[in-house]
């Protein structure tokens, strides 16, 4: 392990060359790497000198460089879109010092089941910007499902559209600082007391995440006065593994109650 070599590339090209050629891992904030067994790799490529701390906003589209930390994203989004689901998901993630260290890029690459970020990125239909072997722009879901995309490639940024949709986030935690057993994210487009569209995802399930398609269909074009919230509760039919010390069946019931409450809250606020 002491033979681990550190590389400090100054350009993205240098970094992706290293990642392609050597048996190395990229190092962003390092918090996820500390959980990994590094015995099988030869080196770490430190990304901190790369120009990946940027924020670009064009019309309705916002793009963050992958080295933005959770704290960076929170403070930037607070200024432009307080209802943003990514902002709501990250605000209580981990703790203050960890949010200063965890980067958005590292977090997506690691994407553990207890991730606070994945659900939000999915409902935002986020695009992942890659450099290296798989250079290009890919939908987050494709990135999560296709392991080949991760090979010899570096996340340099994420991009998503800002919207006027109402949002809701619920993390099932035991204490305020806890990795959630599951995370519910909801985005609703409500106009004139009618739900036009919705996007609802639960992460931390045995499938890692599940879209609540049945609920989305039920809500589509529905007047808010005739929503039966108990029905929504029953429609949450997902499997949990029981990780994070929570009983799977209880998790399912709880997810139903909290999801239905979340929608009720958004509908009432509109």
């Amino acid at each position: 392990m002491n033979n681990l070599k550190w590389y400090f590339p100054k350009t993205i090209k240098e970094a992706t060359d290293l990642i392609t050629k050597e048996k190395v891992l990229p190092h962003a904030g390092g918090t996820a790497l500390l959980l990994r067994n590094l015995e099988k790799i030869n080196g770490l490529v430190n990304l901190s000198d790369l120009p990946l701390y940027y924020t670009k906003k064009e019309d309705n589209t916002i793009e963050f460089g992958s080295m933005n930390t959770y704290a960076d994203i929170i403070s930037k989004l607070k200024k432009i879109d307080t209802e943003n689901i990514l902002l709501k998901s990250l605000q209580n993630s981990a703790d203050t010092p960890l949010r200063n260290r965890i980067t958005i890029g590292g977090s997506i690459a690691f994407a553990p089941p207890w991730s606070d970020i994945i659900g939000a990125l999915i409902v935002l239909d986020t695009k992942i910007i890659l450099s290296g072997k798989n250079e290009g722009v890919f939908p987050i879901e494709e990135y999560l499902k296709n392991n080949k995309l991760k090979q010899d490639s570096l996340i340099t940024g994420i991009r998503f559209n800002l919207s006027k949709w109402k949002t809701f986030s619920y993390r099932n935690i035991r204490t305020k600082k806890d990795m959630p057993a599951f995370h519910i994210v909801v985005m609703l487009q409500i106009e004139n007391d009618i739900i036009l569209e919705s996007k609802i995802v639960i992460t931390g399930t045995v499938n890692r995440y599940d879209w609540m398609k049945e609920i989305e269909n039920y809500l589509k074009s529905r007047e808010i006065d005739i929503i039966e919230f108990s029905k929504i509760e029953e429609m949450v039919d997902v499997k949990f593994s029981g990780k994070r010390f929570t009983d799977p069946e209880y998790s399912r019931k709880l997810a139903g109650i909290e999801l239905s409450r979340g929608i009720k809250k958004l509908v009432r606020e509109s």
């Binding site: 204490t175 305020k176 600082k177 990795m179």
Partner: peptide
């Protein structure tokens, strides 16, 4: 199975 502070929960000030 829960021999870390991440898994064994004692409270922070926020709680």
């Amino acid at each position: 199975t829960n021999q870390t502070f991440n898994d064994y929960k004692i409270w922070t000030a926020a709680d």
